[in-house]
Design a protein around this nucleic acid. Sequence first.
DNA 1: ATGAAAGCGCTAACAT
DNA 2: ATGTTAGCGCTTTCAT
Lengths: 338, 338
Amino acid sequence: MKASIGDVALKAGVSNATVSRTFAHPEQVSEATRLKVQAAADALNFSVSRSAGILKSGRTYRIALLVGSGIIEWFTAEIIAGLNDVLRDAGYDLVIYPIEGSEARDAFFEELPVRSNADAVFVSSFGISPDEVKRLGTAKIPIIGINTTSEGFDATVGINDKEGIKLIVRHLAKLGHRNLLYLYESFSSTLGFSSFNRISGFQEACDAVDGLTARTLAVQKGDSILDAAISEIMAQDNPPTALCFHQDSQAIPLFFRLQRSGLSVPGDISVTGFDDSTFAKEAELTTVRQRPYDMAVDAAQKALALIEGQPIEEPFETFPVQLQVRGSTAKPRATPLL
Amino acid sequence: MKASIGDVALKAGVSNATVSRTFAHPEQVSEATRLKVQAAADALNFSVSRSAGILKSGRTYRIALLVGSGIIEWFTAEIIAGLNDVLRDAGYDLVIYPIEGSEARDAFFEELPVRSNADAVFVSSFGISPDEVKRLGTAKIPIIGINTTSEGFDATVGINDKEGIKLIVRHLAKLGHRNLLYLYESFSSTLGFSSFNRISGFQEACDAVDGLTARTLAVQKGDSILDAAISEIMAQDNPPTALCFHQDSQAIPLFFRLQRSGLSVPGDISVTGFDDSTFAKEAELTTVRQRPYDMAVDAAQKALALIEGQPIEEPFETFPVQLQVRGSTAKPRATPLL
DNA sequence: ATGAAAGCGCTAACAT
DNA sequence: ATGTTAGCGCTTTCAT
């Protein structure tokens, strides 16, 4: 059915090796032969099969990406795009493994399907345990972390989450806010190392400001983070004057809800996000910008270098974050809400 | 370095074939031998390499997904999730090919990297030409379309875009709207067959209603579709009373913009979307719901059947759409805006 | 139940 | 510049 290298060789009247060379090292083949071979290949709709070459090379030309959830949100989508752009050009396939739920998780680390079947593995924003990293290490392939701890990883890329949230806190403090509330989903797919730092960084930054009251509120996934937010704003005793969301996508819907509740941003309440993702600009959401696409491109390059056994100049890289001050933050109300 | 089947066989004191069978057909191996082999495999951190088996089987266990853009938006993210969930369980890798720009496109169809290197190919929301489909057909693998025409495809899944937009138009007409404007990005990544139908379906549906004025407005990608929308609303002569957006993600930011412009939804203007994607519910956006995840699951199952050479009961499947009436639509203003 | 051996399609060393 | 050949790691008959 499908033409193989032998069919082409037969048709072109040359040896298998010459056909192989025509595609792999065309400069080693004479012009005349090359044309003959190409004509035969075209006639037979032949393309070189990667599988065979892969077997010979000892490489799999597959690179795995472990993500915490099957739902592909902004961050993961950017990561996939960045990784794919670099890896595809280098001849590698990116294979996505969503590790959802503890059964799937245990199964993955038990079977370790990447062992012998991937040349490198990325772990993205995934609350991976030291034991799991260790287990992954037995696959003897480079492990690259994206927004993870660096323990056990061959390379990592990420942002300084603490630094990022600190920018938010200091911005709000300078505006005069003295009562902040941090909101996040406690089982959010992104609640790994990165998230942990963002939350603890918030507390640290707040503690560093005199007279600043700060609370963090974990909302169960599924519970409405918006209901929680509105309830807190309307509380009689000491309501926050600013809400800091763990990520933009949790803050965006709040704007709609607030409008319906007769509350105005930033007049009644200031709101901040984190990511600078979809709609953040249009919503005029004050946030912290990170660029996961760029991180992924860098991570992919690190992976390729590690696969080649090349030394990496900077295995653990921290990417810049930037405060984006927009219309959702302003001075707190001078008078109580009611 | 990496243990191969021979190493395990040696260590366990059995033949290669027995090791192979232990993993592929454990029931054919005696309990005692199986345990011996497994112990040896564990000690050597051995896993069966897929590459070799792939070579023997003649299959690649790779399935390609062609998408029109490197940016993974809601629709594509859902498709990837759905395909991956089914294909991974069946032992297939999903490989994403973003075909961006005409050079990349020509290169893809020239080299046809999926030929001999994928067992099936999905084409998602991609304005593919008949010639390109034909060319793709020379790869002799199943071609499955997702929101495409069916010409040249072995199977397709999709929605009836015309039917969907018709629901929107009839809903608005019933509310009393007589002047509608349809807005879309003329080079949007999703502007394939599906988009074309949505736009022409809009016109058809409007033509079917007596006294209904309808226009469509293509905005260059990059130009602000929001600026265009606001300008149209503020036009002195015969401004539309409802804006129909090609997809939710174009309508969502409008809410923010309108608020700043002192315009209220649906008081001053009704707004509709299409997709029922992220934030549509929170924004109370009237829209048409489609479920790309479900379509992808079905498409993946069709692909697996086609690969096995099994007949498909329903190769060309249309999935239901559903009108979601929400707060962004109401009767038109009785009086002019100004 | 287990072993021996051929071969999947290609590449690269070596030979000419 | 081109041909010959061994072999990548596994699966699968065919023997035993």
